[in-house]
Each structure stands twice: as structure tokens, then as C-alpha cells.
Nucleic acid binder design. Structure first.
Lengths: 171, 171
DNA sequence: CCGAATCCGACGGGATACTG
DNA sequence: CAGTATCCCGTCGGATTCGG
């Protein structure tokens, strides 16, 4: 873990890998080389590997429920039981299985941890809680909407591609 | 599938559920009710449940490698071995584990099935193959870039939120 | 009503060996 | 080099139960 810094320079390992990256590609196309350089710069400076923030966020959102939950929260605060009812009614609309209480709680916790939503609890009896988007979360929901819209507007195209692919062997 | 919407009979079940949706929410705020209606319309017409196209695409992209692979393919065609080398070098940059050949193949297949990339194979010996984005795939990559950029530009904020959350009990 | 704890099945993804 | 088949393990998500 806490190893001494290598004798020569702090980013020696990185530099070396970047050189390897260039060597690993046979690019006779200078334009593409420039593109790759741009991407590598992003990758090296900010990270896009399997444990980088973008991938972790994609993983968080890439589950069964997050798109729906966050989109719903975009309309305003929800109490957990409300949220669960609505989510499950929508699930039924698509003939899908409902979300369990446990999973809903886990999801909400993880959003809260990343600062996307804020949890408010009143110490009454019975207890009352609500969840609402933070400004950061609202921003995220807008970004998600980009993919949601894209998916919806291209779904026929994608469906056609799937159909073509699945029938390719049977021609 | 894409049937006309008769006012009464065919979508009776749906209508019923939509009514339930309204009943499930205690909204004294008319503005929010309008927002919810808008979302419900999208949800009901196009689907946003757990098995809808948007969620399935989010799930496809929400794995360990897709963001990186598709971003790289955005620079031009790759041979599998090239792609794997580059991906793994980048993984090492982030001190992550490499991608296995099997998983890379599985991922590429799934992208191909949805029409995001095109596979070209020459029946030579040794074999040669390459993968390149389709127009649809290029469009998708641009959309992904939206989330990637968002993640990168907010990562400090998110990191701070995580830190605050994890220390909340220890104040 | 909110949510934590426990048990369990399903699936993603890694290592390895093998074919063309 | 490209791809498949097998095996294995860790994690995710669902059902249920219990506590505040």
C-alpha cells in the first residue's frame, strides 16, 4: 500500500503505461490518434476505469429501479410508503415484479450517501420520513433524462436490431 | 403491440391502475400533480418500469466496462485483442483488475445485438475481426458522454457528500 | 409506518482450458 | 488471433421476520 515513491518521478508508472497505450495501437490514421490522445488525457487525468466515478455512478443507476425512483423524486418529496406504492403500481403496468421494502431502503440510502437526496425524519409515533432531491440530485435527474429520452426515441430501431440479430442464423 | 388506444375497453386495466396512482398520492400541491401527470403519461405510454427499454439500456451500460469500451470505440474500429490491451492498460492505471477475454466477448456481442456496433470478420488464418460503432452506437456514445462529463464535473461534490455521510455518526 | 437483520436464489464476471 | 465451454465466487435483489 504505502510504498515509497519510485526513485525517478512520482508519475513514472503512469507515463510508462501511457506510452504502452500508444504502442498498443496500430494507428496509421493521424486523426484517430488525436482522438485517442484526447480520450487518454481524460482517462489518465480523471479516470474512466472500472473504479472511476463515472462508472460507479453508471453502476448505481444501472439497476432495476433507480431510473424510475429518481425520476419520480424529480416531481417532489416522497414518503417511503408512497414511493413504494407508486413504483409498484408502475411495475404492474409493465407486468414486472414489485420492489421490496428492503431494496427500496437500500437504494434510498445509497442515493443519500452520494448526496443525491436528503432524508428527513420526524421522531413521531408512528414515524414519518420523507426523501427529496438535493440540487445535485436534481441535476443528475436531468442528466438521466437524456438517456431516458434517447432510449425511448430509439427503441424501435433497437428492437429491429435485436430481431435481425436473433434471426441471423436462421436465414 | 402498437395498437390504437380505444377509450374504453382495451386499456381498461391500465386506466384503473392510473387512477390508483392518483389515489396513492396525497398531493395538495396542484403544480406537483401536473408534474406527476406528465411523468405518468410517459410511463404509461412508453414504459419506464423495470423492463422498459430505458432501464434495460441503463442496465447494459451500468456494468464495469461498458462506458470505457464504448468510449474507446468512439475513436474508431478496434480489433478485440487491441481493445483488450487498451482496456487493461487503463484498468491498471486505476489499479483495477483486467477484463477477461470472455467478458469482453460477451459485452461486444450484446452491443452488436442491440445494433450499437458492427462486427466484421475475415475468414483468414489467423482470423481477423474488428468492431466499429454503427450510427446508432455513435449516437449512444454521445449520450453517454453526457453522464460521464456530469460525473467528472461533480465528483468532488459527491466525494464530499460521501465523506460527510460516512462520518455522520462520529461527530 | 420506517427500516434493520437474516436467509437464499440468480447473475455478473474472473480463471482456465480448448477449438478453428 | 478470435471465440467457446466450464467452473467458481462475490454481490444484488427478493421474501420474511423483528424492533422502534
Amino acid at each position: 500500500m504505502a510504498r515509497r515513491t519510485p526513485p525517478q518521478s512520482a508519475s513514472r508508472g503512469k507515463d510508462h503505461l501511457v506510452e504502452e497505450l500508444h504502442a498498443a495501437l496500430v494507428t496509421d490514421d493521424p486523426q484517430r490518434a488525436a482522438l485517442l490522445d484526447a480520450i487518454l488525457k481524460v482517462v489518465v487525468d480523471h479516470g474512466l476505469g472500472p473504479e472511476s466515478p463515472p462508472v460507479e455512478i453508471m453502476q448505481l443507476l444501472g439497476d432495476k429501479w433507480s431510473s424510475l425512483i429518481l425520476t419520480l423524486l424529480g416531481t417532489g418529496p416522497f414518503r417511503p410508503s408512497e414511493l413504494r406504492r407508486v413504483v409498484n403500481l408502475i411495475s404492474r403496468l409493465g407486468n414486472s415484479t414489485p420492489i421490496s421494502q428492503r431494496v427500496l431502503t437500500v437504494k434510498l440510502r445509497s442515493y443519500e450517501r452520494l448526496g443525491f437526496i436528503q432524508r428527513t425524519a420526524w421522531p413521531t409515533m408512528p414515524p414519518r420520513t420523507d426523501y427529496r432531491l438535493t440540487p445535485l440530485g436534481r441535476d443528475l435527474v436531468n442528466t438521466i433524462a437524456g438517456i431516458v429520452d434517447w432510449s425511448l426515441s430509439h427503441k424501435d430501431e433497437i428492437t429491429a436490431a435485436i430481431h435481425a440479430y436473433d434471426h441471423a442464423g436462421a436465414d
